[in-house]
């Protein structure tokens, strides 16, 4: 029957089903791109914190003195016009992580991470586009 409630399709994605699935290399406490899990694992005060590529909006890189800064901008409400359909909103009271900035003196590795994350995002968008075209 028509109960007037439109069930909003929330895109379900999950980086890791269990803690034992985290890659071993997270113990280095460095940014890690895990292509198999479509995720970026970030070192945040001793914890290995995954963000699924679907939550990533874009990434920027900035050199300042001896440091390279990587800023991950994540999908959150109130950004830009339209394109809000991809936003998984279940509870309007939710807080969103909007961006995270890391720094390192290892320029070569940070450049590599920048490239890997860019590629991961590009592949995800490509897959989404193909899926959407098939659905039409």
């Amino acid at each position: 029957g028509d109960d007037g409630e439109e069930t909003r399709v929330v895109k379900k994605f999950e980086s890791y089903k269990r803690e034992t699935a985290l890659p071993r290399e997270v113990r280095n406490c460095k940014i890690l791109v895990d292509e198999r899990a479509d995720s970026i694992v970030l070192p945040i005060y001793g914890m290995a914190v995954p963000f699924h590529v679907s939550t990533l909006k874009n990434i920027s890189r900035n050199d300042e003195g001896e440091y390279v800064y990587l800023r991950l901008n994540l999908v959150s409400p109130g950004q830009g016009v339209g394109k809000k359909d991809g936003l998984p909103v279940e509870d309007p009271g939710n807080t969103f992580v909007r961006s995270l900035t890391f720094r390192s003196t290892d320029i070569a590795r940070m450049n590599e991470i920048y490239q890997s994350i860019t590629a991961l995002k590009r592949d995800q968008i490509k897959r989404e586009t193909e899926k959407a075209q098939l659905a039409d």
Partner: peptide
Amino acid sequence: APDELVEVRFYVPGTIATGAAIPAV
């Protein structure tokens, strides 16, 4: 050396803006 977190930004829903900011609602 580990990579260092230097900034986090949060989107925090406001009590008034919530409905307007989130189209789902």
